[in-house]
Design a protein around this nucleic acid. Sequence first.
DNA 1: GATTAGCACTCAAAACACGCGAGTGCTAAT
DNA 2: ATTAGCACTCGCGTGTTTTGAGTGCTAATC
Lengths: 344, 344
Amino acid sequence: MSPVLDDRAAQVLRLVIEDYIETAEPVGSRTLSKRMGQLSPATIRNIMADLEDSGYLAQPHTSAGRIPTAAGFRYYVDYLLERRQLLRSERDQLQRTAGAGAPLPDETIRQIGRLLSQLSGQACVVVVASPDNQKLRGIRLLRAGRDNVLLVAVMQSGWVQHRLIEDEPGLTEGDLEKIGNYLDNLATGLTLSQLRSKILQEMRHEKSRYDRVMTRALALSSRAFPDSPAGEVYVEGRANILEQPEFVEDVHNLKRILRAFEEKSVVVRLLDRVLEGGETRVSIGTENPVEELPDISVVASALQKDGSPLGSIGLVGPVRMNYSRIIPLVEFTAGMLGSINGHR
Amino acid sequence: MSPVLDDRAAQVLRLVIEDYIETAEPVGSRTLSKRMGQLSPATIRNIMADLEDSGYLAQPHTSAGRIPTAAGFRYYVDYLLERRQLLRSERDQLQRTAGAGAPLPDETIRQIGRLLSQLSGQACVVVVASPDNQKLRGIRLLRAGRDNVLLVAVMQSGWVQHRLIEDEPGLTEGDLEKIGNYLDNLATGLTLSQLRSKILQEMRHEKSRYDRVMTRALALSSRAFPDSPAGEVYVEGRANILEQPEFVEDVHNLKRILRAFEEKSVVVRLLDRVLEGGETRVSIGTENPVEELPDISVVASALQKDGSPLGSIGLVGPVRMNYSRIIPLVEFTAGMLGSINGHR
DNA sequence: GATTAGCACTCAAAACACGCGAGTGCTAAT
DNA sequence: ATTAGCACTCGCGTGTTTTGAGTGCTAATC
């Protein structure tokens, strides 16, 4: 099972895969022979038999054509794939959608996801990284009604979070401003998780120093950030899953996939690995991080700005996926979002 | 086709419906005879024939049992239904979930939707009313980085909206405060759409009076509220749709339903009518406001606080839906959310 | 007069049989 | 090394039969 195939075998493997991607049907030697010119069906059959021995192809049953195995797809993606350039119109659409909004408000990122799912015919998954790892630009406190306080945190990236803190009576406007400034100083430049631990630390200190206001500030903000908020998760174009014959055939599997999409944690897990890597990553079938879904593939990429992670975006579909179109799509989108946020 | 059936016919209709709700299979005279005691299959058959003439039952084909028509379900819901009390555990779960958060932050409402979909086995749809029709409690402006301004609008209901306004340089802290106060005065007590038109109006005035700051304020806020933001829309428990045999059988239809759920506007339309009514509303089959989906039912209710609409929540499923469980579920939830927000 | 037992009839769905044809593997000729 | 030829396999679609749940009607019964 050498990792490298001779030219002809590679060619055959490629054609099998490309045909299979289009038709979702096992492909036979006759079809290939026509498409390759040169070789006769019989020869092709021999080559295919070899490829089957090597584990790149498989037969659903005797007397059927061959279909690529996961290993086959892997080989294809690693060595054979020719990336198809994006169409000008695709690039334009993506850029227009991305450019329309402020630096990445929810709605924009969502629309990009939707567009991407349309262009690719797959489901699109976006995870906006938990703001825990983004640096804060500042914190403000606002009065919101008599007993409530609104805490607004702005991230360096332009992302905004707010928390409504209930039942915090007896604070004057002055108090609020003091507390706000104190927190703002404390927070600026830190990430949320750093802030959280800093707050705990300070709380011990301040108690002893007996500064009412500061203690109050800390108590308040620890109520606002009790725990790391999971990042936002969007799934767009779920219905595309239904366009895939291999999924529709088996309703049971279909259910599993759609259920999985409802589970935030699963979606996050799906894109997990990509966050570290930086590169666009292709997980084929069982390679993907969610063992419950052994027959889907994920093409995903991290979104980042100035090297700090903003989240990740991925296209999810059947193993039989048009990688040569989809990989460039994801890459371009990730690059684009990265550079859009790149300005300061 | 008199709207009122004699006791025995009503009884039969009820049993047919209840059996059909459970099994999704046509129900025959034998089964009913057993369940009713008393009457023999032959008698039941006669009654059923009558009910068919009246349009409440139908036969998929000769030699099959009967299934209820939409009219049959309508009659059932209007006259025959016995609401099943919620279990204590269901009430507890709902209240716990609702109580956990601040007054209705997104995440809480989402979780309620999810829980509701779980309890009901249907898909749950929540539309948070566009804030256009909610009264504002106040507006604040915040500096967010050098060139950007963050506008935070707090609604009476506790709902918070924020907009990041880019590229608004050259405003001092003082300016910002003045502008903020001015806007706050202008806005408090108005709804967003009222504010929008008021702003347009004021803009014409102020221009002539040549007050730089105010003009600035108005320009700024008209950038922040360029158009009515559609309310947030959540769909939870989509996968439950796949649990319904009548949907799974026909993949084509399934696609249509799931596609519809991706379309924000369709979801909104689904709950449209309920907003005015106030009452919990049941739309059976073709009665629902979305003609593209003639074979789903919606049980929906408005969410409101102090009489002003906050949004609406609905359970969506097949016409063959367990109304006697689902109607109380929706009603209870709507009531609960209403009263939670009721405190000032 | 309402109810019921009995019976012939209907029809969808399951079970079975069967031929077609795409596709294979092998062998022998090129 | 390639290819033509051929026998063989087996899934799929088609047509046929069987089965059984359920009906409508009629005549007997309470």
